[in-house]
Design a protein around this nucleic acid. Structure first.
Lengths: 223, 223, 223, 223
DNA sequence: TATGAATGAGCCTTCATTCAT
DNA sequence: AATGAATGAAGGCTCATTCAT
């Protein structure tokens, strides 16, 4: 039966940066032209997923956006899901790197300022990759591979933050506080990029940093 | 002839109380039996949307869960979307009521304690209706009626909080801070109910309240 | 993911005659109209598989022949394969019944005559169901469920014949001889129904009976 | 523009020796390298058709088995069908040669023994080329060129046997008996090579010869 | 009021064949 | 002579919605 030949996805793609990006199931080596097509497909996928969301995104949309054909799509990806995974893994990399770069938190102005810089980096990442991140949290796929990737990511991300919160020696429960703060950062960025609320990025970044800082070391200047 | 699947729904259907409960298009008056069927469908819908999410939920699943037939479903709702709307409007009511009940924020222990109670009410509401709330934020339907309902709700909810934050006379930008705090509450509840992270409700509620309070009035007891 | 909901076929449908005939995966009870549609689909399937063969047969062809829709097809069968299985199991029943009715073989004219009658029954069965039988032997599906059904059938059929051959106390290896004779009967019928060779059924039946008889008890009247 | 998949092939291409080997449409003369590539493709085709059957065999499988590319495939064959035809014609040659070598049938032990040798040659041929032979009889392609080749072959093969049967002066209808015996030989070999039944080749060959002989001249030693 | 049955547009995916280098 | 890449017409299957009783 032909179906059984359906290229099984190669699963836990190892972390090498160059293999990360959605190579075709068979792991063919790509020439210049192929690389360009792959790039176009990844770009198109990011765009279309962003615009329509995972479920509403049609392979046809992606293919048109990439100015290529259905056949070509399946030359590079085993399925729509596979393309999404490729994008998601890239984003996950970026997020984890960011998590590891979280600066030590200190009560002084320097602490606040470096925290603000970090939140700003997050915001920029979210601006590019928000749609993919959001898709992870779509309730529908919680118990799929995506859900797992998303969950793992959230966990690792939160853990990183937990360490810093603990080091900050605040009275609150570090675990839960870290969770709450991650939640805040993620969602606030979502609201803003989804333009559900009209707020500039700078303002949001400032406020997020301040709230985070305050929740650990006390409010800023009281009125 | 089945309507094209992408066909936009028949529209606005204002939030009048009698349409609230998802009556069939004709707005028939229901006898006892009809009311029970309607109830079963609403329950089933809530359950199935919760389990599978909006897109993955099949009318067939709902109909089976309600122990009734497809034909009957369309006797009570114009579409799958219509059922979701009925559920969503109910939740929106609860949320707005909750928003209006947000207590005045004060720097003392009483303020913290009443804030905690309020967060707890939110958590309980979320426990029941999280899936519906989450569905609002699914990227895929941002620009549909749901998106609007969700957006409106978030806005009103945030506004309520904004008033309180402003009254608290903290130095931070009240608009954005309110947004950030709403984001935090919503997402934290999501993480916890989605069990992406193992935290008890009580802990989460406590911490959320503390973080909110601290971000306005300063950190709790430093270590 | 919707796909995962795809009705898994219920596998080894138990042998009850009434469940044999391709009930929908969920085993719904059918009313008069449903039964008629099911019948139309089975008929159409038999016809189309006969005309085009399993692979070349399109669900679309079957659906058109049954004057119904794609959707309806999948209401009754989980897949094209499932419909074929339903037909195949019916034929297998008929074949096994026939096998069990194989008369004792005796050297005299009565033996030859009852053998001829039996071969005639086989020919009539083959006339109706040849296409399905042939499809079993399509090389492509040897190692699928069909292949197994076909193989099992051939084995049981041959075994029945083996008993008779053994009882006939001929000098030849009963196992292999039975196999050879079954092979002969099947293929000869194929050649004739496929009209690859112009021979009337009566002639073929006569000759097959004679050859079978002769191979056990000696040639008929020599010239 | 890819040709429509159902497009009938470019036609008759008579059996002239130079087209026999599946030369590309242009009938180019091949150098050493080209000949090796052609050989690899033919081998690969035989293997893949054998493993998967005609329909399930993918050009991709063949190309991989031949360690070459799609482009190259179409340099040597006009289509998948064209490759199959090349293989089929070769087999047909072998079969016809075999048919012509059928020894005169005599009632004595020599007759039986030479018949056995001949059946053995058939079995060896079938072992190599069974899949191709079987494909001829796939119902799906009965009315295509393959069907014709297969039909012609069967006819010629049967005719050869008919002569011998007639010469044997048995009482039975020579035409039909020949058909029956060919059917038996072919199918029995199929059952055995398809391993649908566990019988050694030698046993099968012996029994086939005995049955054939007995059906003409009387049973062997009675018990 | 209820329901079993029917519908068909639309989606994802496959794969023989052609193109460009 | 060779090949990696591209193509797109089908085909199987799904599921929201409508029909007939």
């Amino acid at each position: 039966m032909p179906r059984s030949r359906r290229a099984s996805t190669d699963g836990q793609r190892s972390a090498g940066a160059e293999t990360r990006a959605g190579l075709p199931a068979q792991g063919r080596a790509l020439r210049a032209r192929g690389r360009r097509t792959l790039e176009r497909l990844l770009d198109a996928g990011a765009r279309v997923f962003a615009e329509r969301g995972y479920h509403a995104a049609r392979v046809d949309d992606i293919v048109k956006a990439a100015r290529t054909s259905h056949g070509t799509f399946y030359l590079y990806f085993a399925s729509k899901e596979d393309l999404f995974r490729a994008l998601a893994l890239d984003v996950a990399d970026g997020m984890l790197e960011l998590a590891r770069d979280l600066p030590p938190l200190t009560p002084d102005g320097t602490g606040l300022s470096s925290l603000r810089d970090w939140v700003d980096r997050f915001a920029r990442l979210y601006e590019r990759s928000g749609p993919v991140i959001r898709t992870w949290t779509e309730a529908e796929i919680v118990d799929t591979e995506f859900g797992r990737i998303g969950g793992d990511l959230a966990r690792q991300f939160t853990e990183e933050l937990t360490h810093r919160v603990r080091d900050a020696r605040a009275a609150i429960d570090a675990d839960v506080a870290a969770l709450a703060l991650v939640a805040m950062i993620e969602r606030a960025n979502y609201y803003v990029t989804a333009k559900q609320i009209q707020v500039g990025r700078a303002e949001m970044v400032d406020t997020l940093a301040v709230v985070m800082h305050a929740s650990l070391y006390g409010a800023p200047v009281h009125a």
